[in-house]
């Protein structure tokens, strides 16, 4: 089994963090994992992306030429990556700001209005965690408890008070109808 995911969006949307928490969590669960962020000029240009590969055996390439999952937080990322997604792959789409649909018909599109949900929770900064709630449920590789544990470990390095709102954000995403 190998599952590759590209997370992409604007810098500041927590795109790299999504991939990092995910990678950290699946590592805790005993999988082989690689996390590869975009770097250099690209990052400074305002877009960010990262690739996470998860497998139960050694991972040959951390690059995803045909990702199974694509998480897009903004429109340019959808245009950039939609044609790369593997046949029958899943796109997780930030439907709060992306008003177009991929042209490909074989893909499974999953709308997540992360902006609206985070807005209702009163903190627009947790949009990425809302998205991860939905992503974890749909992909089913790890349990929500495992993800929250990983999230806590990473936030723990910064501040503990942030955990509360993140837990709510994750739950909101997880509970979405899919």
């Amino acid at each position: 089994m190998i599952r590759k995911t590209i997370f992409a969006g604007f810098g500041g949307q927590g795109v790299l963090m999504m991939g990092y928490i995910y990678a950290h969590t699946v590592m805790n669960e005993g999988y082989h994992v690689t996390y590869l962020p975009s770097y250099g000029v690209e990052v400074r240009g305002g877009t960010a992306n990262c690739t996470v590969a998860v497998s139960d055996e050694e991972i040959a390439s951390p690059i995803a030429s045909e990702p199974d999952y694509l998480v897009v937080m903004n429109k340019p990322s959808l245009y950039t990556y939609q044609n790369r997604v593997a046949p029958q792959g899943i796109i997780f789409l930030n439907s709060s700001i992306i008003d177009t649909r991929p042209t490909r018909k074989d893909l499974n599109i999953h709308d997540v209005p992360v902006g609206d949900i985070a807005g209702k929770l009163g903190n627009p900064r947790v949009q990425n965690v809302v998205m991860m709630g939905s992503f974890i449920k749909k992909t089913g590789l790890i349990t929500p408890e495992a993800f929250l544990k990983g999230l806590k470990q990473i936030l723990g390095e910064k501040k503990k008070s942030a955990m509360e709102i993140n837990r709510k954000a994750f739950a909101a995403g997880y509970e979405l109808e899919i």
Binding site: Y20, A23, M27, V33, T34, Y35, L36, P37, Y39, P62, I63
Partner: peptide
């Protein structure tokens, strides 16, 4: 190379 340097693994 850049991939080894940038990549995260356990």
């Amino acid at each position: 190379d850049g991939m080894m340097g940038q990549m995260m693994e356990p």
